[in-house]
Amino acid sequence: MSQNKFKLVECPRDAMQGLHDFVPTKLKAAYLNLLLQVGFDTLDFGSFVSPKAIPQMADTVQVLDSLDLSNTSTQLLAIVANLRGAQDAAKHEQIKFLGFPFSISETFQQRNTNASIQQSLVIVEEMLSLCAANNKTAVVYLSMGFGNPYGDEWNYEIVEKWADILVTKGVEILSLADTVGISTPEKIQEILPKLITKFSNTEIGMHLHSTPAERFEKIKAAYSTGVKRIDSALKGFGGCPMAADDLTGNIATEDVIEFLNSKGENLNLNMEKWHEAMVLSAKIFG
């Protein structure tokens, strides 16, 4: 095991965005403030997208203003779906990462961002310029990276083609995203090592969704590839409301922590704050 520290990306935004009842801004901020004290590398905290599309995230700016960043090393990531969202997010000094879902399924890119894959490539280029000018870093998710439920063509060559194009454009962090939970340990172990080897100067991450029964197998498979960046959400809440009618939750952070601890990884997390966040999560997710 190399000494590169594991980057854990906690995703409360992904966990909350599909909830039917609006979570009060004050409660969101209290939850995020606890998570900020745990010691994750990155907190995917909110999104700058149309409130019509994701009403739950309409208060992202108000939440941001309520976050205490004075005593945390955790960096903030916000999701954007178009140039306007990226411009809005870039105005906020507290935000370090702008995340953009770049689907390699044409159907899903239209559903998720109202843009084609080619139009989205232009958005990525504009976002990279914006990031460079505002001291931000782009994180691009290769969503539907393990296949899609729409019958759009998918194979490893398509994944590699788009990874290559994005890296050539200047993307430094690529996260392979399994938006609907159809990845398998076999696919993870086939695709990830190839990407990590081919794009050795790019940070390659995993954003997996899973049913509870398959979580550990997927975490184990991801770890075996040498990946050093994993997205997850406390208790495995969440899913993408734009992708399918049945939400498949995120990988549960506690499962990732348990697995990595069993491998002797030094995660350096404040477990007391983690347990406080666990308790408070019941008020949000029921």
Rank of each mutant, 00 (worst) to 15 (best):
Met1Ile: 05
Lys7Met: 12
Lys7Phe: 04
Lys7Val: 05
Cys11Asn: 12
Cys11Ala: 15
Arg13Ala: 07
Ala15His: 05
Gln17Pro: 05
Phe22His: 13
Phe22Ser: 10
Ala29Thr: 08
Leu32Thr: 05
Leu35Pro: 00
Leu36Ile: 09
Phe45Thr: 01
Val49Leu: 13
Ser50Met: 09
Pro51Met: 11
Lys52Asn: 14
Ala53Tyr: 08
Ala53Glu: 11
Met57Gln: 13
Val61Met: 11
Asp65Met: 11
Ala78His: 02
Asn82Val: 03
Asp88Ala: 14
Gln94Trp: 03
Pro101Asn: 05
Pro101Ser: 13
Phe102Arg: 01
Thr113Gly: 05
Asn114Glu: 06
Ser116Glu: 04
Leu121Cys: 06
Met127Phe: 00
Thr137Cys: 04
Val139Met: 13
Val140Met: 08
Val140Trp: 01
Gly145Trp: 05
Gly147Gln: 08
Trp154Ile: 10
Tyr156Gln: 14
Tyr156Ala: 14
Glu157Met: 12
Ile158Phe: 08
Ala163Trp: 00
Asp164Trp: 02
Ile165Trp: 03
Glu172Trp: 00
Leu176Phe: 04
Leu176His: 03
Ile188Phe: 06
Glu190Phe: 11
Leu192Trp: 09
Lys194Phe: 03
Thr197Gln: 15
Phe199Asn: 04
Met206Pro: 00
Ser210Phe: 07
Thr211Phe: 12
Gly226Tyr: 02
Ala233Asp: 13
Ala252Thr: 03
Thr253Ala: 06
Val256Pro: 00
Ile257Pro: 03
Leu260Ala: 09
Ser262Ala: 14
Lys263Val: 02
Gly264Trp: 02
Met271Ile: 11
Lys273Asp: 07
Trp274Asp: 00
Ala277Tyr: 07
Val279Asp: 08
Gly286Phe: 02
